[in-house]
Structures are given as structure tokens and as C-alpha cells.
């Protein structure tokens, strides 16, 4: 409202209401600021927690991180462009999987990091996990080392065949993906590692979160995968469980070769 268009019937109340309006809007502004700040304080994870002191385990993990991981993943695990991704939000499960299987630290940049002898002990990799967990949060593994005994093998087999066998093959022996990538063999994997892989989806693997495969589903799958390893082949030597490829090789290298020699021997007897 402008002074050029005065309204005679509203002279004295106009003064009063302008004060009240100023007061009102100031109050509303204050309330909005408090609300926004409050929301921010609730939602934003960074500031307040970053300042919080690390637990001793995470502190030890940070010390390891700063000498072994920082080159590629950067200070505060924010990632280095062209070298390594940010680790904010990956959780201790991902760290445990990558470090305990020896995939991290990676030997070189290539299609996929390979499983190798781990560089850190189990304790060290859990310290690293604790550091990354406290830094950015993310999925964590349940307690315990033995998940296989909590699962049902037959149900795990059904889940495995539908969800896992298209890459890891019916035998768990792994398979090829495009451009040099591959699904690794599950033979050396421990219960915790299989759980962590499903939970975090390392490298080219999809994530199987708890809404896709519940923790009990995961235990079932682990039980099946581990039973595959302990299950001895009832039919003799399993030929690597590769299926018809090695079977075809065997019939020529063993069957045909043996019988050609037999033919040479029999035909020579005249």
C-alpha cells in the first residue's frame, strides 16, 4: 500500500497495524529461520558429526587409511578424479569386503580388481571399515562369522539359481562379463564376504539390499554356496564343473585318443 492512495477511515489504526505487521513478519521470519535451521540440523549429517571425535578403532583405521588408501580415495575419503571413487556412504561392509579379499589396495587400474592375498589383517580391515563407517555411514554387516548354519540350503539354492547363477554360474565357479570384466569364483569366499558382496554390490555386481533379499534370504544363499564347496561330486571327477565345454574336451582327449590307440593296436595284430 502506498501513501498516494490514502484511506481516510483508517488513519490511527493504520499506524498501529504497521507496527504489528512489522512485528508479525519479523516473528514469522524468525520462526521460518528456526524451522529451516532445525530441519537442516536434523537432516544434514555433515557438520555436527564431522566434528565428533573418532572411536579408537576408527582412529587406528584412519592412520592406516592415510598411508595406504589416501592416494586414490583422497583426504576424508572424498575420492580423487580418475583414480578412485568417494567412499562416503559405502559403509564398513564394503570396506571389509574389498580389503579382506585383497581387492583393495588395487594392483592397477583395469577392468576389475582381482582377488589376491590381503595386505591387511582382519583386525586392520575392520578398523578401516570403522573409520569409513564413522566418516560417511552406510551398510554394515551383522555380527558373527558363521552365517551358513543359519540358512536353509534348498531355499538358498532356489534363490541362488534365480539371482546369482546368471553370472556366477550354476557351480559358483564364476563367468565372463563384457570387456574383460567377470563374476569371480565363489570358492574362496567366506560367509561374511558373500554377505558383504550381496549387501554392497562390489565392482560389477548389483546391490541386493535388504528389501530385495532379506537377511534370512542372504543366509540361505550363503548356506547353499558353502554347501556347493563341501559337496563332493558323486559322479567322479567333476571336470571343473564347467559343463559341456570340458565334457567335450574330455571325450576327445580321453575317449577318442584311447580308442584310436586301441584301433592301432588291434589292427596291428594280424
Amino acid at each position: 500500500m502506498t501513501p498516494d492512495t490514502p484511506r481516510p477511515a483508517a488513519g490511527a489504526p493504520k499506524q498501529r497495524s504497521r507496527v504489528r505487521r512489522r512485528l508479525n513478519s519479523a516473528l514469522r521470519m524468525f520462526a521460518a529461520l528456526v524451522f529451516a535451521g532445525g530441519i537442516y540440523a536434523i537432516v544434514a549429517p555433515g557438520g555436527a558429526q564431522g566434528a565428533a571425535p573418532l572411536t579408537p578403532a576408527a582412529e587406528a583405521g584412519k592412520a592406516l587409511y592415510d598411508v595406504s588408501c589416501i592416494t586414490c580415495h583422497g583426504a576424508n575419503a572424498q575420492g580423487v578424479d580418475g583414480r578412485g571413487p568417494s567412499l562416503i556412504g559405502v559403509g564398513s561392509a564394503a570396506v571389509e569386503f574389498q580389503v579382506e579379499t585383497g581387492r583393495m589396495p588395487a594392483a592397477r587400474q583395469e577392468a576389475q580388481a582381482e582377488r589376491k592375498d590381503p595386505m591387511f589383517t582382519v583386525d586392520q580391515s575392520r578398523q578401516l571399515g570403522a573409520y569409513i563407517q564413522e566418516l560417511g555411514g552406510g551398510p554394515q554387516l551383522p555380527e558373527g562369522e558363521d552365517f551358513a548354519s543359519k540358512g536353509k540350503i534348498a531355499r538358498g539354492g532356489e534363490l541362488y539359481r534365480i539371482n546369482c547363477s546368471s553370472c556366477h554360474a550354476f557351480s559358483g565357479g564364476g563367468g565372463a562379463l563384457s570387456s574383460g570384466k567377470y563374476a569371480p569364483s565363489l570358492e574362496p569366499a567366506t560367509d561374511r564376504q558373500i554377505y558383504a558382496a550381496m549387501l554392497t554390490g562390489p565392482q560389477n555386481m548389483p546391490v541386493f539390499g535388504d528389501n530385495e533379499l532379506s537377511p534370512q534370504d542372504k543366509f540361505d544363499i550363503i548356506a547353499y554356496v558353502q554347501s556347493l564347496q563341501s559337496d563332493s561330486d558323486p559322479g567322479g571327477w567333476g571336470l571343473g564343473r564347467f559343463g559341456p565345454v570340458t565334457e567335450g574336451l574330455a571325450i576327445f582327449l580321453v575317449g577318442v585318443v584311447a580308442l584310436v590307440f586301441a584301433a592301432l593296436w588291434i589292427a596291428g595284430k594280424s
Binding site: R161, S166, F170, A183, D233, P234, G236, G238, V245, E247
Partner: peptide
């Protein structure tokens, strides 16, 4: 020599296609 270990393949379901599926 073990050949065609059908117990490892599981029953057929349309959604199940294992890696390394080859014919003879």
C-alpha cells in the same frame, strides 16, 4: 568323470539362465 550334473543345475524355471550354459 562326472557328466551333466543335473542336480547342480536345479529344476528348469524360465527365469533361471546360468552363466556358462552350453550345449553338448
Amino acid at each position: 568323470f562326472q557328466i551333466n550334473p543335473i542336480w547342480l543345475f536345479g529344476p528348469y524355471e524360465a527365469a533361471v539362465v546360468s552363466a556358462g550354459s552350453q550345449p553338448d
